Computed example of a mutant assay.
Amino acid sequence: MEGNLSYLLDRGSSEDTVVDYMSPTASSSAAYEYSFYPELDISCDFENIPAFASTFFPVLYSLLFMIGLVGNALVIWVLTVFKKVRAMTDVYLLNLAIADLLFVFSLPFLVQYSIVSQWTFGNAMCKIISSAYFIGFYSSAFFITIMSVDRYLAIVRSVYALRVRTTAHGVITSLVLWVVAILASTPDLIFFQEMNYHNQTKCIPHYPDSNNGWKTFSNFEVNALGWLIPVGVLIFCYYSILKNLQKCQTQKKYKAMKLVFIVVIVFFLFWTPVNIVLFLDSLRNMYIIDDCHTSQRLDLAMELAEALSFVHCCLNPIIYAFVGEKFKKHLWEAFRKYACFLLICKDYSAFSGRSLDKHSSLHTMSSQSSFVGTVL
């Protein structure tokens, strides 16, 4: 398997274009030894690509799998068992965790691929895993975007939000976003297949007639749906939210503003590099970039950028759930009940903590706390 966002970055492989670098989880540096770009009439020696990647990426992806699995599963557990998904925000948070889990589930296959250096799961699994990865990729970006819109409506358009921020609308919107994510991932289901290159079995896309246009289109699709549109919406929504937060006079104001900056900065930090590399890869497909040295650097950048993007699915539970005061209250309640069940505690109140939600004696302070609490 050509590896998570290596899918994105090597989507144009064909019989006429043999790019024989392996995924980030390749088991030896020998996988990088040689590449030939016949349409560019250049041959590249990849011996300089760091050998540490063959051991670093499997360890990194194993850790990310465990952290992402535990964090997102914990969010789903609390929302479905204890909080009961009663609000639109809960619906989006639940779907974001499911999307990140789809994203995370491709990691064990990449780790296994690093051991045997080729795809061993068959053609059907090649299509399933690549499709699941891309569905998780798109849906994660979509739900981060719609959660920003939800916060914008709750704070900036609070009167209008009373009519539209319902659980039913949240479910309908979520279904639409899943359908769009599946449709955007359809080319990967169609074109990804198990293929044999240089006596090695790989899971890579095979486009008809060696058409680089498909690969370029796929790259731009990821750039638009996975970065440009979400970033535009995030900037607009959170800029409007920050303007409204400045009117608040509570201590929670600065905590909420800090969270807003964290959301935007983290999205930029972890998704911008891979989209830049995708754009440069598109330039290579159009032969604007056609020298060997740049191609070498671009292939290495592909490996590093995709690894960075996977970290984001582990941070989402922290950014969107664990820092929220309401969610922390439900999380504490869940652990408290579970601990009491395991320890058969006699004094249930011994596990009780002070409520995280403090009520002000002044009505205006209470109103402002609720206002800021929408962000937290």
Rank of each mutant, 00 (worst) to 15 (best):
E15L: 11
Y287M: 05
K326C: 08
S28Y: 05
L107K: 04
V116E: 13
V116L: 11
T167E: 12
V264L: 15
W271A: 00
K358C: 11
P38V: 01
I241K: 00
I98P: 03
R151H: 04
E221I: 09
V266M: 13
F105T: 10
W77M: 06
T120I: 12
G3P: 02
D10T: 11
A184P: 02
A256P: 03
N48S: 14
K253W: 07
D90W: 05
P187T: 00
R86Y: 04
I76Q: 00
L362Y: 15
F103E: 01
P273Q: 05
I155N: 01
V263H: 07
A256E: 03
L40V: 01
L225W: 10
Y254T: 09
L225V: 09
F327H: 11
K253L: 06
N212V: 15
L69H: 00
V111A: 08
R336C: 08
L101R: 01
V179S: 10
Y61F: 13
V59K: 10
L9Q: 09
N219Q: 15
T173Q: 10
F105L: 14
F36K: 10
L107H: 05
D90C: 04
Y197R: 15
F142R: 00
K247F: 05
L278Q: 13
W178Y: 14
Y338M: 08
S139V: 06
F335P: 01
N275M: 10
H198Q: 13
E39T: 06
C313T: 11
F121E: 13
T145C: 06
F341A: 11
P50F: 07
G324C: 15
S148I: 02
S130K: 01
W178S: 05
F134G: 01
V116A: 12
P50D: 14
T166E: 06
F270Y: 12
M147P: 03
S361E: 14
N123F: 03
S117W: 10
Q249K: 14
E333Y: 12
I172N: 01
I67K: 01
V266P: 02
D299V: 03
L162A: 07
Q296V: 08
V18Q: 10
Q296E: 08
F142Q: 02
T216N: 11
D281E: 12
F82E: 13
W332C: 11
I344H: 12
H359T: 15
T216C: 08
K328S: 15
I229T: 08
F371Q: 08
Q193K: 13
N316H: 10
S114R: 07
T186L: 11
T173H: 07
S174G: 10
M22L: 13
P38A: 08
N285D: 06
L69P: 00
Y152L: 07
K346F: 05
M147S: 07
K329N: 13
S309P: 01
L162H: 06
Y207T: 15
S148P: 03
S117L: 09
H206C: 13
V156D: 02
K202G: 00
Y348D: 12
Y34K: 11
N72K: 00
G232C: 06
F341P: 00
F57T: 04
D20H: 07
H198T: 09
V116S: 14
L300V: 08
I135D: 04
S185P: 08
K358T: 13
V179H: 04
V263I: 12
